[in-house]
Amino acid sequence: MSTSDEELTWREIEVGAIFTVPGTTADYQTGDWRSQAPSYNFDRCIKCGICQLYCPEGCVGQDEDGYFIADLYWCKGCGICARECPTGVITMVEETE
């Protein structure tokens, strides 16, 4: 059911228009809503994970070194992580075209 909704015909719709595949919005890019993006100075990072906890998108993951970093595919650039980071690792920078 993750076919584009513009292609679906009435015959392809599931019983009761029910979706059977969970969590398909993960394919949907909300990152292009962003006007500013988080930028990281990991020197100060204590890997507390506050940024991950408070992210409304749930888009903050950990890299292989254990640093927390937003996935820009979904990050809408709200700046909550930057505001809440206790050690000032994150600054929000304007996106450029």
């Binding site: 969970p22 969590g23 398909t24 919005t25 993960a26 394919d27 949907y28 890019q29 909300t30 809503w33 890997k47 507390c48 994970g49 506050i50 991950q52 906890l53 408070y54 992210c55 409304p56 998108e57 749930g58 888009c59 996935d71 979904w74 809408k76 650039g77 709200c78 700046g79 909550i80």
Partner: peptide, 24 residues
């Protein structure tokens, strides 16, 4: 925070406004 469950039953890619407290 590291002890918080990693599971995300509410997936990213939802269309809440930027900085939505309710989505969080």
């Amino acid at each position: 925070p590291r002890l918080v469950p990693k599971k995300e039953p509410f997936a990213p890619g939802h269309r809440a406004c930027i900085g939505c407290g309710e989505a969080l």
